[in-house]
């Protein structure tokens, strides 16, 4: 599934240019860095309430194709400045984690995992 379809499903806005190459095969939702770190792959979408520069760094470090922030809360411009050469796509969902994951669930069936 590509990021454009994801964004349409969620009514999310994109903070960075879309990349047609970004192919999402699974979704992981969680708010703990250790969990995100363990589950991040070059084919995952991370869904998180965290908006600090650390999660942006993490995405770059783990070559994550896309992150979805929640509740219409985007990272600060300073945190976005950390982006550098990162190719991660940033989405901001207007919904909370429960509803965001709910809408994504049918698309990924068993592949949605929720953070403990």
């Amino acid at each position: 599934m590509n990021v454009k379809q994801l964004a349409e499903t969620l009514g999310a806005r994109l903070l960075t240019p879309d990349s047609p190459d970004a192919e999402i095969e699974h979704v992981f939702a969680g708010d703990r860095i250790s969990d995100l770190l363990n589950r991040a792959t070059p084919r995952s979408l991370l869904v998180t309430n965290l908006t600090g520069s650390q999660v942006i760094r993490l995405a770059e470090l783990m070559d994550v194709p896309a992150i979805c922030f929640l509740n219409d809360a985007a990272p600060s411009p300073e945190a976005m400045g950390e982006l550098g050469e990162s190719q991660t796509i940033f989405l901001v969902s207007p919904l909370g984690m429960f509803e965001t994951c709910g809408r994504l669930y049918p698309w990924f069936a068993q592949e949605v995992e929720s953070g403990a």
Partner: peptide, 12 residues
């Protein structure tokens, strides 16, 4: 609040 300190570091 930053997402750290979950007690998963060393096990990870």
């Amino acid at each position: 609040a930053l997402g750290f300190g979950a007690g998963m570091g060393l096990p990870n």
